[in-house]
Deep mutational scan, measured.
Amino acid sequence: MDVFMKGLSKAKEGVVAAAEKTKQGVAEAAGKTKEGVLYVGSKTKEGVVHGVATVAEKTKEQVTNVGGAVVTGVTAVAQKTVEGAGSIAAATGFVKKDQLGKNEEGAPQEGILEDMPVDPDNEAYEMPSEEGYQDYEPEA
């Protein structure tokens, strides 16, 4: 019985440690998101679009440190934060509304985080759909 109880105690310690790591990862992701939003706020009209992409990228980098179902929630929060940063930029006159959601080359930025393969159960990952990809044929 002692062996059984000791095993359960060790398992509990492992769960607590994993929860603490997840909590730490979420806190880091939130900190990076805040950094990115402050970065966007300090940019001029020309830099705002690039700044919004930076927020998304920093958040995406930190999301990889967070495991399990938390990833889905962090990704949703990050996307809403990026959308909010863009709205703030438009409201303050840093950028025109028609410039939001495009990178410096004018290509749409939507789907940055949505296409990231995420499995809350950590069982399997699927690649994003290939609808947006084109076949590449090298020139002879």
Rank of each mutant, 00 (worst) to 15 (best):
M1H: 15
D2L: 03
V3N: 12
F4G: 00
F4D: 00
F4K: 00
F4S: 00
M5K: 14
K6S: 09
G7M: 10
L8N: 00
S9W: 11
A11P: 00
K12I: 14
K12M: 14
E13T: 02
G14R: 08
V15Y: 10
V16M: 13
A19T: 10
E20D: 06
E20K: 11
K21V: 13
K21R: 11
K21H: 00
K21S: 03
T22L: 15
T22G: 05
K23Q: 05
K23F: 15
Q24G: 02
Q24C: 07
Q24V: 11
G25I: 12
V26D: 00
V26N: 00
G31A: 11
K32D: 00
T33N: 00
T33M: 05
K34T: 13
K34M: 00
K34P: 00
E35F: 09
E35G: 06
V37R: 00
V37H: 00
L38C: 12
Y39Q: 04
V40E: 00
V40R: 02
G41P: 00
G41A: 12
S42T: 08
S42P: 01
K43S: 03
T44C: 10
T44F: 06
K45Q: 03
E46F: 11
G47L: 12
V48F: 03
V48I: 11
V48S: 00
V49G: 05
V52H: 01
V52Q: 00
V52E: 00
T54A: 04
T54E: 02
A56C: 13
A56R: 07
A56W: 10
K58L: 14
T59Y: 14
T59S: 06
K60L: 15
K60M: 14
E61K: 10
Q62M: 05
V63A: 14
V63P: 01
T64Y: 14
T64E: 06
T64D: 06
T64F: 12
N65D: 06
N65K: 11
N65R: 09
V66E: 01
G67T: 12
G67L: 14
G68V: 12
A69I: 05
A69N: 04
V70E: 02
V70D: 01
T72M: 09
G73R: 05
V74D: 15
V74T: 05
V74H: 01
T75G: 08
T75P: 01
V77E: 01
V77W: 09
A78C: 13
Q79H: 12
Q79W: 13
Q79V: 10
K80W: 14
K80L: 11
T81W: 15
T81K: 01
V82M: 08
V82Q: 01
V82A: 05
V82G: 04
V82D: 03
E83P: 03
E83V: 13
G84V: 12
A85P: 01
S87H: 10
S87W: 13
A91R: 13
A91Y: 11
A91M: 06
T92K: 09
T92D: 03
G93D: 02
G93F: 15
F94A: 05
V95Y: 07
V95L: 13
K96P: 05
K96E: 12
D98Q: 01
L100F: 08
L100Y: 13
G101D: 08
G101R: 06
N103L: 10
E104V: 15
E104M: 04
E104W: 03
E105I: 01
P108I: 01
P108D: 03
Q109M: 11
Q109L: 12
Q109W: 07
E110I: 03
E110A: 14
I112G: 06
E114V: 09
D115K: 05
M116Q: 03
D119H: 05
D119K: 00
P120Y: 04
P120T: 06
D121A: 09
D121N: 09
D121G: 10
D121R: 01
N122V: 09
E123W: 10
E123P: 09
A124R: 05
P128Q: 06
E130F: 11
Y133L: 07
Y133M: 12
Q134K: 10
Q134I: 12
Q134V: 05
D135V: 03
D135K: 05
Y136G: 01
E137K: 11
P138G: 09
E139L: 02
A140T: 06
